[in-house]
Structure formats: C-alpha cells, structure tokens
Amino acid sequence: MSDLNTAMVEKYRNSFLKEVEANVEEGEWVKMCMQCGVCSGSCPLGPYWEHPPQEIFMMIRAGERDEVLKSTSMWMCTSCYNCIVRCPRELPITHIMHGLAHYAERLGIAPRQNPTRKFALMFWDNLSKTGRVNEPVLGVGLYFMNGIKEGIRTALRMAPVGLGMLRTKRFNPFAFLFHRGCKGKKDIHKIIRKARELELAKAAKFGG
C-alpha cells in the first residue's frame, strides 16, 4: 500500500470531524449534513467555489484535513445566508464556513493571497485597536491593498465620491489623525485577549 493510501485510510477515520467539532464555531453541526446539495445550489457564488459547502462537509467526514483548511472555498462566503434559510436540516452553514476560515487562519494555513482574507485581517486590526472602525483609514487602506501604484489610481478615481461625502458630512477627514475609538477600549482589549487565550489553548491540543 502506498504512503498516500495509508494516509487516506487513516484520515477516513472520524478524527478530523472530531477536530472540527472541537475547534470550529458551530462545528458540531457538520455531522448532521444529509448531502442534499441545496446549499451548493443556493449559493450565489457557488460556481466560483473550489469546493461548495456540501462537498466541504463530506470532505470533513472523509478526513481530508489539508484540502479543507487550505482551501479558498470558505473565504468565498459573502454571508448572504441563502444556505441557512434553505438548509432542510437547519445547519448554520454560513457560520460554519466562517468558523472554518477562522480556524484555518489561526492554524496559519489559510491561503495567504486570498483578498477576502486580506480584507478580513485589515478590518479586524482596524476594529480591535480602538473598538470602533476608523472608516477613512480602512477605506483608503483598502485602495493600497495591492500596492502603491494601484492605490493612487483608485484614490484618484474615488476622489469625487469622497468630496461629495465631505460636502454632505458623511466623511470626516480629521479622523485620519484623531480617531476617538470607543469608551471601554481597555475592556475590549481585555476581552479579546481572553478569547484568544481560550482559542489557542484549544488549538494547541491538535497542533498547527
């Protein structure tokens, strides 16, 4: 028997399913999928997924750990909630997808160049710093996500929109320098630190 095959045999045990149940948000629902495929059929981005949700669930049960966690699939989810609404087994599919993406990121094996991932990280860093999103920084930062040249071009193209927002007081340019954040900034940092501690302790059980 080939090495790959031996690995397959081992992986077709329930271990990855158990890992997902223990570590992924709403992961205990994965075993309840009945493979009807309604989620995959309902997803507006379905055709662009590497593995649609139905397949992801089957792969988890089949123990295909790397293929699932390194996949770009769950990063495609736009949280439209079509799948949750339609799932006859009432699986919280959207949440599971985000849970899987987050778990992969925690383990450090998420696809690095995925734009959704990049945006999610920027958003999180921006938000967690002060407890409130600094919109000018996030928005402009997004322009420069793929390099300075493209950033300048996008910024110039968006300038009229920005000016319009400025006129109607929808945009505060001083926030670039003086972002106030929320009142309980320190408490929020405490909460986040504790949550991360718990997560890492769990993840350590299975290793990256």
Binding site: N14, L17, K31, M32, M34, Q35, M58, R61, R89
Partner: peptide, 24 residues
C-alpha cells in the same frame, strides 16, 4: 440514496447526532 420511510428521518437524524458517519 438513503431512504427512511415512516419516522425514519428522525432516526436518521438521531444516528447522525450519535456520530454515525453517512457516506454517499
């Protein structure tokens, strides 16, 4: 094709809850 007539759908769900793996 899993065919669970009668109240079998509840039994199927219970089986999944208990950790029985269903592979198509």
């Amino acid at each position: 094709d899993l065919r669970t007539p009668g109240k079998g759908e509840d039994l199927y769900r219970s089986g999944q809850r208990k950790g029985v793996i269903f592979t198509k």
